[in-house]
């Protein structure tokens, strides 16, 4: 399950990424390098373009200009499923699961290989199911495997979403507001999971508003304001950076 590639080959970076909607520049000339093997956090005030940046990287939105490089390979404007298979998994801002599929079915959606013969094999492929069950145990919802996802609570859906992403064996995982809308206990649980998965060698990129979580969890923080990074560094450094205060407080 762990990847053995050398850390240097796992870097994700963007150069001059730009995207505008109508006349509004959501992301402007954003050049960002994420630290491989670390938990990277992306923070910034509302409307600073974090989610748009996120969507450009994962291919959900086509950027107007700039490039995204992953494993030294240009993945700009590739369709989202290609980017996913290249090894970038993601969660969505408002947690999204497949509501009318069971928890186990939800887990079996992720496709890491595309060989057609593979697909026509029954869904009851024991290897995949064992893997899915192991992940469900890991996030703590294995007892719900035959429940339709819409009947889960919001927190359980968040855990399911994370487990579903892990099925694709991504070495880089992008989480959009993992702490959004969940109670403090579950935030702690998700934080622990992220740390464990990071210890196994997965790079994380977390967009988050919850500063406690960001500061306690991440190794490297990138601050966005008005569509571009304005500061980066360790949580301590970023916290004392005057530009960050300015962006947040408008002073």
């Amino acid at each position: 399950m762990t990847t053995t590639a050398p850390p240097a080959a796992r870097s994700l970076e963007t150069v001059g990424l730009t995207k505008s909607f109508g006349g509004v520049h959501a992301v402007r000339d954003a050049t960002v390098t994420f630290q491989p093997g670390k938990i990277n956090a992306l923070i910034g005030p509302n409307g600073s373009g974090k989610t748009t940046f996120f969507n450009c990287v994962t291919g959900m939105i086509k950027p107007d200009a700039g490039s995204v490089t992953f494993h030294g390979e240009d993945i700009t404007r590739r369709p989202p499923h290609r980017i996913a298979r290249a090894g970038i998994g993601r969660s969505f801002q408002l947690c999204r699961v497949f509501p009318r599929m069971t928890v186990l079915e939800n887990m079996l959606v992720a496709v890491s290989r595309s060989r057609f013969r593979e697909l026509l094999k029954g869904a009851h492929n024991p290897e995949e199911i064992d893997k899915a069950r192991a992940l469900l145990v890991r996030v703590g919802i294995d007892h719900l495997e035959n429940t339709e996802a819409r009947n889960l609570s919001y927190g359980q859906q968040k855990l399911l979403e994370l487990a579903g992403v892990l099925m694709g064996d991504p070495d880089t995982i992008m989480l959009d507001e993992p702490a959004g809308g969940v109670n403090p206990a579950l935030i702690g649980r998700i934080g622990t999971l992220v740390q464990e998965l990071n210890a196994e060698g997965r790079t994380f990129l977390v967009v988050e508003h919850n500063m406690d979580m960001v500061m306690s969890l991440s190794h490297h923080v990138i601050v966005f304001d008005r569509g571009r990074p304005i500061a980066e560094g360790t949580p301590d450094v970023v916290q004392s950076d005057p530009r960050v205060l300015e962006a947040y407080l408008g002073v």
Binding site: P79, A84, R85, G89, V111, G168
Partner: peptide, 9 residues
């Protein structure tokens, strides 16, 4: 969208 993000073409 979600399916695509999980690698489904």
């Amino acid at each position: 969208d979600k399916a695509q993000a999980l690698g489904v073409p």
